[in-house]
């Protein structure tokens, strides 16, 4: 399960605009240049609506930039067909969402095993054991048959973390993974996420409001007015809402 692949992500002059229901165009990101090197941990801070999640979605191939180029391990995202995009998303990326996004009618074990449905034959055959292993690593070895509604918020997010890591992705994209949790539980989750990401050798892009937690990352960025700029350690930028 340990990911030994390092994938470099690079945004070059990327902008993202959305067309509003009233026809007006909303610019979210403009001329963003960003590199994520294999194995590094990157924290992205910013106010609500600043474009942090959009940046993460572009990195995770969930959407394309309106302008500019996004290179995934040297491949231009615009040139990927849908099948290739899905394959890359499944193999190279793991997602952790703020509100967990677990399948309600599936047990914790089945939720963790879900990404392996699209994995290689060998990984698919071994999916239950792999999922069980990951659940154990996030401390839920005894809750594998529990359904999401039977788990606390922290436990559900642990399941989501296990699901993000079960295929051994090259990059984990976490969109405010502690946003729905209390401080202590959030810290625990982040601790689990960081340690497992480090253990698997994968990159971690962490979107958060919490500047304190962001300091655990190797590098910090702030998204403001559609631009992304680095945040030097020790500088108290007014990034929190």
């Amino acid at each position: 399960m340990t990911g030994d692949r390092c994938v470099d992500l690079q945004l070059v002059d990327c902008s993202k605009r959305f067309t509003q229901p009233d026809g007006s165009v909303l610019g979210v990101l403009s001329d963003v240049d960003l590199s994520v090197r294999g194995g590094e941990t990157l924290a992205v801070l910013g106010r609500s609506g600043s474009g942090k999640s959009t940046l993460l979605n572009i990195l995770g191939l969930l959407t394309d930039p309106s302008e500019g180029t996004y290179l995934v391990d040297g491949r231009v995202s615009h040139e990927l067909d849908e099948d290739e995009r899905c394959r890359l998303r499944g193999e190279q990326f793991g997602f952790v969402f703020q509100d967990y996004v677990l399948m309600e009618r599936r047990t914790a074990l089945e939720n963790v095993a879900a990404p392996l449905l699209h994995a290689s034959d060998a990984a698919y055959r071994n999916r239950t054991a792999a999922a069980r292993h990951m659940l154990g690593r996030v401390g839920l070895g005894d809750r594998e048959r529990s359904y999401p509604w039977q788990l606390s918020g922290g436990q559900q997010q642990r399941v989501a973390v296990a699901r993000a890591l079960v295929r051994g992705p090259a990059v984990v994209l976490a969109d405010e993974p502690t946003g729905s949790l209390d401080i202590d539980t959030g810290a625990e989750i982040l601790d689990v996420l960081l340690s497992l990401a480090a253990e698997q050798g994968c990159s971690l892009v962490l979107v958060t409001h919490d500047e304190r937690l962001s300091k655990l990352a190797d590098r910090r960025l702030v998204v403001e007015h559609g631009s992304v700029r680095p945040l030097a350690d020790g500088r108290a930028e007014p990034v929190l809402p």
Binding site: E82, C86, R89, M103, P115
Partner: peptide, 16 residues
Amino acid sequence: VREFGLRRAVGARPRD
């Protein structure tokens, strides 16, 4: 719908 979004995020193709 949310489940389908998740499945797409973890690698499912539309035809899947």
